[in-house]
Design a binder for these strands. Sequence first.
DNA 1: CGGGATCAAAAAGTCAGACTTATTTGTCAC
DNA 2: GTGACAAATAAGTCTGACTTTTTGATCCCG
Lengths: 233, 233
Amino acid sequence: MSTPGRGLHGHVLESLGPAIAAGEYPPGSVLRTDELAQRFDVSRSVMREAVRVLESMHLVESRRRVGVTVRPKAEWNVYDPQVIRWRLAGADRPQQLRSLTVLRSAIEPVAAGLAAKYATADQCAELTECALGMVAHSRGHQLEGYLIHDVAFHRVILNASGNEMFARLGDVVAEVLAGRTHHEVMFEDPDPAAVTLHVQVAEAVRAGDAVRAEHLTREITVGALQELDILAP
Amino acid sequence: MSTPGRGLHGHVLESLGPAIAAGEYPPGSVLRTDELAQRFDVSRSVMREAVRVLESMHLVESRRRVGVTVRPKAEWNVYDPQVIRWRLAGADRPQQLRSLTVLRSAIEPVAAGLAAKYATADQCAELTECALGMVAHSRGHQLEGYLIHDVAFHRVILNASGNEMFARLGDVVAEVLAGRTHHEVMFEDPDPAAVTLHVQVAEAVRAGDAVRAEHLTREITVGALQELDILAP
DNA sequence: CGGGATCAAAAAGTCAGACTTATTTGTCAC
DNA sequence: GTGACAAATAAGTCTGACTTTTTGATCCCG
């Protein structure tokens, strides 16, 4: 999506990264650089660069006389967009989508509250535009058009929060929303209640009503949690 | 803290990474691999590995015939623990601490609510132990002892939430709390109200009262925001 | 039989040099 | 001015030799 396999080492990463992220190599598995270089038909230099990148993501650890060992999932840099993409592309997809949705449910309401305080006039306008776009595509199986505006809406909220950490979650939210539309069962038009909520959030942000924007966004994320059957007994 | 400069390329990273993270090279600055290799007195192979790591963090972009260009801060992988550490070590420290504290204020209350539902008996016991440790070190300038138990407390909450994304923020929270104790003005004993809140959170989690755990934790994070003068007009 | 020192093998780490390739920039003709 | 072509440049790649660390086995001695 953003960083295709640029260069040979990138090509290797796109093959090896998803495999590790999918758990094909159990934690503690040992790989050898030379063997990998042969397998992917690249020089050791290239293979070493790829291993360095995997190491920086905490997916593997390289030690002398031992080799390249796969680290347990609990140590991975799970916020690395590349790792997230790799996990979403493999067997870990369901769990990844669930944990990301819970993350969204924590972040987005707070971000919306901040956006109500700090959003610029341009951002307010863009937000309203997105909400109207969602309304326009909410009926008649225009799921792709709806998705585009939905993603844009949440990106604007996260950016307008003024918090750099929130802003960088835009890509993650985009992946979750896209995943929901493309992979999960989504034959019907989006829930009208959700569409209304987005419009109301845009209004609240424009009005500078932080409490209301946060509350409404929380309702949106609760809906997202319910879609994945993440509920409290 | 966790990954000291292992190997030559790690040594280079520990020097170059903080410099870039501190903004010493404005976005768009162009570095050349050969020149860097000379400057750090390493071979090009080693320098290339270091550049690859910086590239995977989205701190720089390497392009043929151009060189290694520094990317704008908005594109950095700001959730990479290494990047966070580098930024905390440099001129960006205040802004980084603020944005991380806002992040905490979004995540931790939700995590505490989930912990109330999913915490094991062991985790509840550990939580109580941490809270008691905080009480024990809350008076008489035992800041270091207090910090240790404070960090452990929040780690347990994040782990007990059962969400892998939350769990991986333990290190970040530890950095923030340590930073507050060590760098900011912290001559006095911790706020007694905050200590009480931690004890109450432990109780709520043990009792399985998610709403109460979330609400109490929100009070704790509001206090943290106030310490940094992050308030709403 | 146990324990510590020593030694050998294994794999990553490092370096140097030659070569390839893509990209930019400048130039020249049209 | 515009288009094509050529030169310069810096990253990218490969190879081979060498070093260093770590492990694990062996051997000697108590």
